[in-house]
Design a protein around this nucleic acid. Structure first.
Ligand SMILES: [Zn+2]
Ligand SMILES: [Zn+2]
Ligand SMILES: [Zn+2]
Length: 91
DNA sequence: CAGCAGGGGGCGT
DNA sequence: CGCCCCCTGCTGT
């Protein structure tokens, strides 16, 4: 029905699962704690990403320059601004 | 411009 | 329900 609206903040979520997860965020279910800093992640995936920062893992490497990003999105952003894609050729 | 954290969509188990 | 991928916003250098 696409009517998954949060009664706490009024956000609309696409699926019931997403809404339930959203409610968990409101509840502050940060059960994933980092072993190197007082950071506590809301989701396991976020903790893994955070751990990459400590471990120095940089799986996303730019093939146009010696830049390495921890988060995949960061690499994309880097390419978008630094190497403004020859495919769309900017002015 | 680069880095980090929050939050959402979608698919598989 | 759990896991993975993607986009967005804020802050610091
Ligand atoms: Zn809400
Ligand atoms: Zn940490
Ligand atoms: Zn690059």
């Amino acid at each position: 029905m696409l009517g998954n609206v949060c009664g706490l903040c009024g956000r609309s979520l696409s699926s019931t699962s997403s809404l339930e997860r959203h409610l968990r965020y409101h509840r502050g279910e940060r059960r994933y704690a980092c072993a190197h800093c007082p950071y506590r992640a809301v989701a396991r995936d976020k903790l893994v990403r955070h751990l990459h920062i400590h471990t120095g893992h940089r799986p996303h490497r730019c093939h146009l320059c010696p830049f390495a990003a921890i988060q995949a999105t960061d690499l994309r952003k880097h390419i978008r601004s630094k190497h403004p894609t020859e495919t769309i050729t900017p002015p």
